[in-house]
Amino acid sequence: MPTALTIADVERIAALAQLELTDEEKLLFTKQLADILAYAEQVQAIDTSGVPATAHVNAAQRTEREDEPRQSLPVEDAIANAPDAAPEAGLFRVPRVIGG
């Protein structure tokens, strides 16, 4: 599967990634990502039939604990770094979502 990357592809990916790229960045990434993907394509020639995927290497993961309430971060600490917050309401404030 040869990789022919176009500016339209880069724009589509940037939209998925919530990145507003400049025209200069779009041109640069079109070339650089095409180079990197062309190099990475060598993995496609390897026979992996019947080989399971490795998502992580944990031998034994402890993923469960008793469902007991524990102390968590106080709200005022959690919102202290927010660029815009409503501390009295304990909320993050964001620009308009609907009709914006």
């Binding site: 592809d9 940037a14 400049t22 960045e25 990434f29 990502l33 914006g100």
Partner: peptide, 29 residues
């Protein structure tokens, strides 16, 4: 004044440097 989505994408374009953006793009692809 341009809404939430524009805030996300401008923030990320202005806040991240070129290598981080390149990797986010590659990973998203």
């Amino acid at each position: 004044d341009e809404g939430l989505k524009a805030m996300y994408s401008r923030t990320r374009d202005e806040g991240f440097g070129p290598e981080v953006k390149r990797r986010i793009m590659l990973g998203t692809y």
